[in-house]
Design a protein around this nucleic acid. Sequence first.
DNA 1: ACCTGAACACCGTTCAAGT
DNA 2: ACCTGAACACCGTTCAAGT
Lengths: 267, 267
Amino acid sequence: MASGSRTGRPPRTSVWLDDRLAPKRRSNAEQPSGLDRERITAAAVRLLDAEGLEKFSMRRLAAELGVTAMSVYWYVDTKDDLLELALDSVFGEIDLPVDSPDADWRDQVRRLADEYRGLMVGHPWVSSVLGRYLNIGPRAMEFADAARRVVERAGLPAPRITGALSALFQFVYGFGTIEANWNSRCREAGLGSDEFFHRVFGKVRGRAEYATSLELMEQRGGDTVDEMRQRDFDIALECLIAGIETMRERGTGEADAAPDDPSDGAS
Amino acid sequence: MASGSRTGRPPRTSVWLDDRLAPKRRSNAEQPSGLDRERITAAAVRLLDAEGLEKFSMRRLAAELGVTAMSVYWYVDTKDDLLELALDSVFGEIDLPVDSPDADWRDQVRRLADEYRGLMVGHPWVSSVLGRYLNIGPRAMEFADAARRVVERAGLPAPRITGALSALFQFVYGFGTIEANWNSRCREAGLGSDEFFHRVFGKVRGRAEYATSLELMEQRGGDTVDEMRQRDFDIALECLIAGIETMRERGTGEADAAPDDPSDGAS
DNA sequence: ACCTGAACACCGTTCAAGT
DNA sequence: ACCTGAACACCGTTCAAGT
């Protein structure tokens, strides 16, 4: 009945949880072809960046490494595993804030949000991969821990911290997804952001369904698409930070812990 | 040089912008096989719901319709076009608020957010499709218009409205993506949300990288995964609403319009 | 106008075989 | 221990042909 069991073996959950090859992950390049997990992952990231997730294939990757498609399977169980490895590897690019209790938590939130957004814009395939897997690799966990420490310093009651984290970083995720997708389409069309915008804009002019949206756009005349986007991001982020500040001491808690559980302040 | 031009014809942007077949979209089922766009789209949605985006294929869909794979191509240019049609069709399920100026905008925001989240959870493929295409179908536009009208009623200065919209709905998008993905994995594993959680939880116990996350989880003992998720969603949404309220009159505008443009209050 | 069949250029992955 | 080649069961899409 369970759809994942048609091949006999149980459905995979994540490289980080059930990787048959994990212990043999020696990075010594003593192999005939100089292959190892790091080299494969790095090549995957390079290819994903250059050609996109759609065109990425095990065969294409193997060719890039000068090797047969099946050689890669010696180091990696499945394509899914490889994508998870690539995902976690780019999380390593994020510059995490040092734990300085004198710094303003708001600035640190802004910096983390910028870093996260930058990751998604810099690697347009990240959004899609993030949405497909569990994202529990070691570097993603470091990022999550850092984010939690920063938001904890805002002084929220404990049960609200995960909600605030969710508001912040799910927003950045959604924003980065749209932005990365837009950029990819521009690249495919061989156009700059503004040229592509005006092409879409032009095709839609005069159609009733788009009247109000067009109107909204014309009010913001004079700016580039990138400027509008940056401003929306900044405003949204300030909105979130201000929202978090209001939740520090407000006693209401309609949405807080279960109705008959008064242990909100527990460490 | 542009990567999209390898096939000779220009890269597609959207069914809604360059659909060669648009005018012939007659819905009279006078065809030999009773096929038309609506029937095809409906079947696609059914199949996507039942088996997921990964397993969805033109051949599989054709089989479901009792027809050859290539028959579908008479009504639809590409698989991408079909996915955009399916996406817009489920946007039609969203129950839009009537324009009642006496209702509290906060309640209407909560309702729209719930509807949007419900759409993504009810159709786990929606998140992925949303992240890949432009989402400018007629029903998606109606939703966007409704959202804009609701947020406008919060009384923000005009240049902040799109930022606030972004904060709200990109958050719901991100949240819904994670949630839908989690649910899909549970279904694949043939487990309930809590059982699946405890499986992952168990595999990770004792590993240093996961120590702080596990600690965080244990503090919330006693609740089901769904309850925790619902609470995070509610708290995040209240955080966003509170944030929007603080942006109504605050004069700072560090992130507002361009520095030398004082025309903020323009209609 | 609508539908089919065969074909092209791909996929991820398995498996037996090589070194 | 590591890598290859052939094969399986698929893809999206084109194109010439049928009715």
